[in-house]
């Protein structure tokens, strides 16, 4: 029980779930687990089964695409952010590689568990999606900004 209380607090304090109703939090805690990952290790790989999503509690990671001869970093995810929304939509496959830049401390949520609860409780489902949409929106906007190549050579 002690661990569940601890997870509940972590969820409460993480910016992604800040202010969430107690009844939803307890539902979330049932699907959550603490994880850690050493620097350099992969949290998941492109094409892999997206069976989780993560709150980043400490450390940072990079989303990468591997190409022959080089690796392209597409984004950095820091403490206070989340990783992964492939678990929300079929076919539940990761779109990028996620590699820890530093030691990572995370809370993971089992996707099947959470999807099940969200299906059963539309209010929870709405609450979780409501928090995902702005994150997706911000990342899309940031991606579009980089698409402009504003520091580029011009012309």
């Amino acid at each position: 029980m002690v661990q569940i209380e601890g997870l509940g607090r972590i969820i409460d304090e993480h910016p992604f779930f800040r202010g969430i109703d107690g009844k939803f939090r307890s539902l979330l805690v049932g699907c959550a687990a603490n994880e850690r990952l050493d620097a350099g290790q992969y949290l998941f790989r492109q094409g892999g089964h997206a069976d989780k999503f993560y709150l980043v509690r400490a450390g940072s990671l990079q989303l990468e695409v591997h190409a022959p001869g080089r690796t392209i970093v597409v984004d950095t995810v820091d403490e206070g952010e989340i990783v992964g929304w492939s678990w929300l939509v079929e076919p539940y496959r990761w779109t990028f590689d996620a590699r820890a830049v530093t030691l990572l401390r995370l809370v993971s949520f089992d996707a099947k568990c959470l999807r099940g609860k969200m299906e059963a409780d539309a209010e929870l489902g709405y609450e979780v999606l409501r928090r995902f949409v702005p994150v997706i929106g911000q990342r899309l906007a940031a991606t579009r900004l980089r698409l402009i190549d504003i520091y580029g050579p011009g012309e």
Partner: peptide, 13 residues
């Protein structure tokens, strides 16, 4: 904005 794997710093706007 753009980096390869050698870069340990932040990528993003």
């Amino acid at each position: 904005d753009h980096a390869t794997g050698q870069w340990a710093g932040r990528v993003g706007v």
